[in-house]
Amino acid sequence: MAVKKVALACTVCGSRNYTISENNQRTERLEVKKFCKHCGKHTLHKETR
């Protein structure tokens, strides 16, 4: 069985820069500050499904 992946999207520009494995135990969407190569700075990234 393959591992399902979800993307982390930048809240500023909307680009999907990172992928993580899906976790069914997480009830809320993940929000992390990551570096966005399109914005050139650290921004908030939210989990997309």
Rank of each mutant, 00 (worst) to 15 (best):
G14R: 14
K5A: 04
M1A: 15
T48N: 09
K46D: 10
Y18L: 05
C13L: 05
G40R: 14
N23L: 06
Y18S: 10
A9L: 03
I20Y: 13
V6L: 02
T43Y: 08
V3F: 09
K41P: 01
C10Y: 06
T19W: 04
E22T: 06
A2R: 13
M1R: 11
C36G: 04
E31H: 15
A7S: 11
L8F: 01
T48A: 12
K37M: 05
K4F: 07
A7H: 10
N17M: 03
H42L: 14
L30T: 05
Y18K: 02
C36H: 07
A9I: 09
C10F: 03
K34H: 11
R16K: 09
G14I: 15
Y18T: 02
G14S: 08
V6T: 09
R29H: 14
G14F: 08
K46V: 13
C39F: 11
S15W: 00
K33E: 13
E28T: 12
T43L: 08
H38P: 06
K41I: 11
V6Y: 03
N17R: 06
L8Y: 10
E28L: 15
E31L: 09
I20R: 02
K4A: 14
N17E: 07
F35L: 12
R26E: 11
L8G: 00
V12R: 10
C36L: 02
R49W: 05
L30S: 14
H45F: 01
Q25H: 11
K5P: 07
Y18H: 13
T27K: 12
T11Y: 02
R26H: 01
C10W: 05
V32L: 15
N23R: 11
Y18D: 10
R16T: 03
C13I: 06
T11F: 03
Q25R: 14
K34L: 10
V6Q: 03
K46W: 01
S15D: 13
K41M: 08
T27F: 05
E22S: 04
C36K: 07
L8C: 03
H38L: 08
T27P: 05
K41V: 09
Q25W: 09
T19Q: 10
T19V: 01
K34C: 14
Q25P: 02
T48M: 12
A9K: 07
R16N: 00
C39R: 05
F35R: 10
R49H: 10
G40I: 11
E28C: 10
R26L: 03
R16L: 00
H38D: 08
N23T: 11
V3Y: 09
H42Y: 09
S15C: 09
N24C: 02
L8S: 01
A9M: 13
L44R: 04
K5C: 05
G14H: 05
S15G: 07
K34S: 03
G40T: 08
C39N: 07
C10E: 10
F35C: 15
H38I: 09
C39K: 05
A2Q: 11
C10M: 04
L8H: 03
H38W: 13
M1F: 15
A9E: 14
R16I: 00
A9C: 02
G40S: 02
A9F: 04
E47V: 02
L30G: 03
V32G: 00
N23S: 12
L44S: 05
R16P: 01
R49M: 09
A2Y: 13
T48W: 12
K33R: 08
M1I: 07
G40C: 08
